[in-house]
Design a protein around this nucleic acid. Structure first.
Length: 877
RNA sequence: GCGAAAGUGGCGGAAUGGUAGACGCGCUGGCCUUAGGAGCCAGUGGGGCAACCCGUGAGAGUUCGAGUCUCUCCUUUCGCACCA
């Protein structure tokens, strides 16, 4: 064993060993319990960032820990390889997205390997490989057959200069990212997946996911958004019938059917068909409708916009009173929710109130506060106006409480065929068509005679040509005649191939199923999926809390309903790791712009108490401003390159720091000093083992001899107990609490104790040996390379990767004396050494004999004494 | 606006209702070294010579005992956002 810890040498040796042994290749074994540990696969953007390192280290620690627990562990890795950045890179550099993507994958794979993750690389997949997306296409066709997939028109962002569809992220302040032209909305045919059919199930099953963070479940529940209410039909009045030339009703959804008698207007979305019909003969209204269409599509902007509207001049009849109610077009009504129309009840809805006040519409109070807060709605909005209460001025329903009134009104309306109770969902169907090149082709053919025809299964996959270079205008696929022109599978006549590709969320909605059988070329899944699934632990960023996880839950249910896998919930446990933050440093330039300096080029300055007082640039020694903490980003120039870190300190230091600096779910603040501290710890660990094995080897610890003459000294017993307590704590911290930071801290304490005793020579060699073995074993999931070397150095001939996680020795944990904390009136006054299990009287006597205790008890009567055996005694005087 | 989480030393962070500040960083002093951005030792919440006192965003409450539980408020972060 060499004296100096050289991370590069150590890490290469360990990785070579694992590769040669195929240590991480997982095999199905029905006789062994499995553990499927999954980290969200990366987008191959070019290089790993610290967020990846953190994500994959958490997964790796769990995978290695569970492996040592004896479980059959699968930890796969792959690439979310389709998507827009590859097209942008193609536009910028003239390189085909396929080339750019595959080069990035090759580079990032090397980076992942250099970090020593226990990944089964034989199962690697990339979503841009036909062997993967073939099954996207196959599954899409099965959904089409069952009506889960369907076609309807959808609204897209259209750049009029480039003549191309823009993704939401390509629209900046309402303008195209390349041309700066104002973006228009266009309606085009698209394919949708009927996720709303699964809304109820997706919502209810959230309660059966105890292994998911509460906030993720809440976010999903809000996203699905279930509301119970009543659908109401307002029959057209004469003017509306005359305009449309037909009978009919304007249908709305409401959760407050009890306020039906308070309706004084109807509001419809500018996109509602009735608005278009009314605008046909009304140029002012047409102008207003057009104005609404050009507004921002960002929902947050829409939400803060002023309430505006215009009367259509048309009316409907109130379903109960029969009175005419005017229809308005209003900018606050969403077309996509509840039919694009609402009943306006200004007295009991804040938005309707604001609208009515602006346009002088009548406000009619029909609910009185049940706790006497108000009888009639006043001239400024009060939150209690929106609460439930007792109905007034509501015909036969007056006097009912709101909840009873909803039922009663719904029943009466149902009798007239003008209403029914129903559930409304916020969740909308999932549009998967993208007018983009670098994605999975939608396997359809458009035939002038037969219409839309599915590509037959035996012709799958529809392979995406990989040599195209998009230029930013339109989809290059649509210009490639050998792709577009094809034969209709039904009539053999000339036909056109669909050129839209699938949303990349499709790719990521089932990759975790496919890992179990990436080599299966006759079906998307086989029986191996039944062995491995569900995923036991999923780890990834909180940014995927809604869409990716919801789509995956949906897709898994579809796969279930296709009889491919009897599974509803794909992820049994979910860990959402926090962000990686770093300091931001900048200078303000003469023109007022900020120049950001990378924290690596800056030296922070501290005062004598250790407080940060400023920083100077390492390049010119001039001061720089400290701009607080922020997520690592290019724009703030505060990223840390994992590659540099690995080269300088090694993968183990990188892994150790990310696990030590914060609990996994919290944000992690980067600190170069902290990294050095972890590096220092690894060197001390190395040195401790080096010094230890350099001494003459004494016999190994013999547990049977503990009581005899060779029993360890008092110090030896203490260190032994500390070692086994550390083992117990680390086990609990990793397996139950997932607080890797405290687990590492515990091992640091143990190592400090070893060093402390090593210096004094009070501890038998064998006890120290055991303590070092425990330290190395429990650290090995976190810093596997150094532990690989140290294990051999400690005299083992087999690799630590195949060791089992040890159990704490109860004999070692036993102690004869314990510290008893003595409080007087809840304040700490003394610590006593007492035998384990000392009785209450014994503890009390010992406490009262202590001079420090006496000082506070003197002259007063002890009214009460609370005794927690072996722990605490509180005297109340 | 609605929902969720969180406020603890100079900093990151520890504390099944029972010793507040583990562990690490930074800082201070010392040792060693030709030298060190290496290593080792000691110290490091505030006040006080000390005995002690005060300290977990603010205020109340429950309790023998509250960083932890309850209520009110303040602040921050995150998510959703005209969802009828």
């Amino acid at each position: 064993m060499q004296e100096r810890y050289e991370a590069g040498v150590v890490e290469r040796a360990a990785q070579d060993y694992w590769d040669a042994q195929g240590s991480f290749e997982a095999r199905e074994d029905p006789n062994r319990a499995k553990y499927y540990c999954l980290s969200m696969f990366p987008y191959p953007s070019g290089r790993l960032h610290m967020g990846h390192v953190r994500n994959y280290t958490i997964g790796d620690v769990l995978a290695r820990f569970m492996r040592m627990q004896g479980l059959n562990v699968l930890q796969p890795m792959g690439w979310d390889a389709f998507g827009l950045p590859a097209e942008n890179a193609a536009i910028a550099n003239g390189v085909p997205p396929a080339t750019w993507t595959r080069e990035n994958i090759a580079y990032m794979r090397r980076q992942l390997r250099s970090l020593g993750f226990a990944i089964d690389w034989t199962r690697e997949l990339a979503t841009c490989d036909p062997s993967y997306y073939r099954w996207n296409q196959w599954l899409f066709l099965r959904m089409l057959e069952r009506g889960i997939a369907y076609k309807k028109t959808g609204v897209v962002n259209w750049d009029p200069v480039d003549q191309t569809v823009l993704a939401n992220e390509q629209v900046i302040d309402g303008r195209g990212w390349r041309t700066g032209a104002p973006v228009e909305k266009r309606e085009i045919p698209m394919y949708y997946l009927r996720i709303t059919d699964y809304a109820e199930e997706l919502l209810e099953a959230l309660d059966q996911l105890p292994g998911w963070p509460e906030r993720v479940r809440v976010m999903q529940a809000n996203w699905i958004g279930r509301s119970e209410g009543v659908e109401l039909a307002f029959p057209y009045a004469e003017d509306t019938r005359a305009l449309l030339g037909s009978e009919g009703t304007l249908n709305v959804f409401t959760t407050r059917a009890d306020t039906l008698y308070g309706v004084t207007f109807m509001a419809i979305s500018a996109e509602h068909p009735l608005a278009a019909a009314a605008a046909a003969g009304n140029s002012a209204l047409a102008a207003f409708v057009e104005q609404c269409r050009h507004g921002s599509t960002m929902e947050a902007d829409v939400a803060s916009a002023e309430k505006r509207g215009m009367a259509t001049g048309l009316h409907v009849r109130h379903p109960l009173s029969g009175q005419n109610v005017a229809i308005w077009v209003a900018n606050y009504v969403l077309m996509a929710y509840g039919g694009g129309a609402v009943m306006g009840v200004p007295a009991h809805d804040e938005r309707d109130f604001a609208f009515a006040q602006r346009y002088g519409i009548a406000i009619r109070t029909v609910v009185a506060s049940s706790h006497g807060a108000y009888e009639t709605v006043g001239s400024s909005w009060q939150p209690e106006y929106g609460e439930h209460g007792v109905l007034i001025d509501s015909g036969e329903f007056s006097g009912l409480r709101s909840s009873a009134a909803v039922d009663a009104i719904a029943a009466v309306l149902a009798g007239k065929g003008l209403g029914r109770k129903r559930v409304q969902w916020r969740l909308r169907d999932w549009g998967i068509s993208r007018q983009r090149y670098w994605g999975c082709p939608i396997p359809l053919i458009h035939c002038p005679r037969c219409g839309e025809v599915a590509v037959p299964d035996e012709q799958l996959p529809v392979v995406l040509p990989e040599h195209l270079v998009p230029d930013g205008s339109g989809n290059p696929l649509a210009r490639l005649s050998e792709f577009v022109n094809c034969e209709c599978p039904r009539c053999r006549g000339p036909a056109r191939r669909e050129t839209d590709t699938m949303d990349t969320f499709v790719d990521s909605s089932w990759y975790f199923l496919r890992y179990t059988c990436t080599d299966q070329d006759r079906a998307p899944l086989d029986e191996r999926a039944r062995y491995w699934l569900p995923v036991d632990q999923y780890i990834g960023g909180i940014e995927h809390a809604i869409l990716h996880l919801l789509y995956s839950r949906f897709w898994t249910r579809v796969v279930r309903d296709l009889q491919l896998l009897p599974l509803s919930e794909p992820f049994a446990n979910l860990l959402t790791q926090g962000m990686v933050l770093n300091q931001i440093y900048y200078r303000t330039l003469a023109d007022g712009r900020r120049q950001y300096l990378n924290p690596a080029d800056v030296e922070p300055q501290f005062d004598a108490s250790g407080a940060r007082v400023g920083a100077v640039s390492l390049k010119d020694d001039a001061p720089v401003e400290y701009g607080g903490l922020g997520t690592m980003s290019k724009s703030k120039n505060n990223g840390v390159d994992p590659q540099t870190l690995v080269e300088k300190y090694g993968a183990d230091t990188a892994r150790l720091f990310t696990m030590f600096a914060a609990p996994p779910e919290q944000s992690l603040e980067w600190s170069d000093e902290g990294v050095q501290g972890q590096y220092r710890f690894l060197r001390r660990l190395w040195k401790a083992v080096y010094d230890h094995v350099g001494e003459d080897n004494l016999p190994r610890l013999d547990l049977r001899s503990l009581a005899g003459e060779s029993a360890p000294s008092e110090a030896g017993r203490t260190l032994r107990r500390a070692a086994h307590q550390t083992l117990a704590k680390v086990t609990a911290d990793i397996s139950r609490r997932r607080t890797f930071n405290t687990a590492i801290a515990a091992v640091m304490e143990l190592l400090n104790a070893v060093g402390h005793y090593q210096e004094r020579g009070e501890v038998p060699h064998a006890v120290r040996h055991e303590a070092l073995e425990i330290a190395v074993l429990v650290l090995s999931p976190i810093v596997p390379h150094i532990c690989h070397s140290l294990w051999f150095a400690l005299g083992h001939t087999t690799a630590i990767i195949d060791e089992r996680w040890p159990e704490p020795d109860s004999q070692a944990l036993a102690q004869s004396l314990v510290e008893l904390v003595v409080q007087v009136n809840g304040k700490l006054r003394a610590r006593l050494q007492l035998p384990v299990g000392a009785a209450r009287e014994r503890a009390l006597d010992a406490a009262l004999a202590d001079p420090r205790v006496q000082r506070f008890v003197a002259g007063k009567a002890v009214r009460k004494a609370i005794h927690v055996p072996d722990k605490l005694l509180n005297l109340v005087v």
